[in-house]
Design a protein around this nucleic acid. Structure first.
Lengths: 181, 181
DNA sequence: GTTGCCATGTAAATGGTTACATGATTGG
DNA sequence: CCAATCATGTAACCATTTACATGGCAAC
């Protein structure tokens, strides 16, 4: 049995375990895959991945094998039985999933009352533009159509959808705020 | 001129400055107001607020006055001219606002391919339930109708809207994932 | 031959959360 | 007088980001 419960897995460990299960076996490949596919809703930085990989190996959740390319060292990581069970436990965990946002546009809008009316509209305008840029980038990603599987694609569609919703909200809010003066 | 540029304000400083401008003058009141009104999109913890208040005072952005209630010490914080300018600079800043998400349900869905089909639906089901709970809480808040101003209310309506969107997305995704088996 | 990518790692700094600790005031 | 809330603060810990450092490989 895996002695590691879902809440003991830190944020980096969760995404790393999943990526290894999907067949991304080197630290570098895991990093690249996170950048490509989960960055927008679950980031992790290089500086955290390599130490985490060693911690997971020490905990017996992954195995390491040297797998050099020529003279260049390279490590191949695979899930152990315990690692696979820990991953399954986390994916099937019943406790409330983390859902957090840091939304600076909204915080600014929250404080818009202390500004001149003319400056208020600019806040929601910049909010709309931000989402417009994200939408364009996500549409390009979806057009390129390079996905690991259906679920990878669905996650990107979610990101696109939420940005579209936020853009539309900002557009409507711009009207409301303009009338408010 | 304020020597403090928007990017030099840390996350706690941004919300604290705004709260003081709105008239929440003690560390305790600021904390309570963050919990009530920005927690869902911009959190800050007690342990960060008091030290930050002293840093802001040292930087000359806020003034402190002792304002005891009986024998109980209490500090009253107000924006200085420089603090007010720094706040305005941040609110009107043209650079891209921060917009980040940590979405564990989505990360799990991203890895659903490694699970049995029967377990996949459960992931989106738990996602839907999470948003259902958030929606109920936010609707209660809106019914209670205790807001500082229009913008405070709008921010809460945003939070409600995004949770409704996410709930509907999860409901649709549950169908898609169920068919996928 | 040199640019860019594959690949791994460390150290320092940053930023934030949690828990602990204390004590006064207010209302029942 | 007791509980809840107002009010302030510190210390330890945790996680993560950034910057730095290194070197081979592949392609042009």
């Amino acid at each position: 049995m895996p002695a590691v419960t879902p809440d003991e897995l830190n944020q980096t460990a969760r995404v790393v375990l999943g990526m290894i299960a999907e067949g991304h076996t080197t630290g570098y490949a895991i990093k690249a895959e996170i950048e490509r596919s989960t960055r927008l809703f679950w980031g992790a930085s290089v500086g955290g991945i390599y130490p985490e990989l060693r911690r997971l190996a020490a905990a017996g959740l992954v195995s390491v094998r040297d797998d050099p390319r020529g003279a260049a060292r390279r490590h191949c990581y695979l899930l152990t039985q315990a690692g696979r069970e820990t991953l399954d436990d986390w994916l099937n965990d019943e406790s409330e999933p983390l859902f957090e946002m840091r939304n600076e546009s909204l915080l600014r809008l929250r404080f818009a009352g202390v500004l001149d009316p003319s400056e208020r509209v600019a806040i929601v305008e910049r909010m709309r533009e931000l989402h417009e840029r994200r939408i364009a980038a996500l549409e390009a990603t979806l057009d390129a159509d390079e996905f690991d599987d259906v679920f990878d694609r669905m996650a990107t569609e979610y990101a696109l959808g939420i940005n579209r919703w936020a853009r539309d909200w900002a557009a409507a809010a711009a009207h409301e705020v303009a009338v408010e003066r």
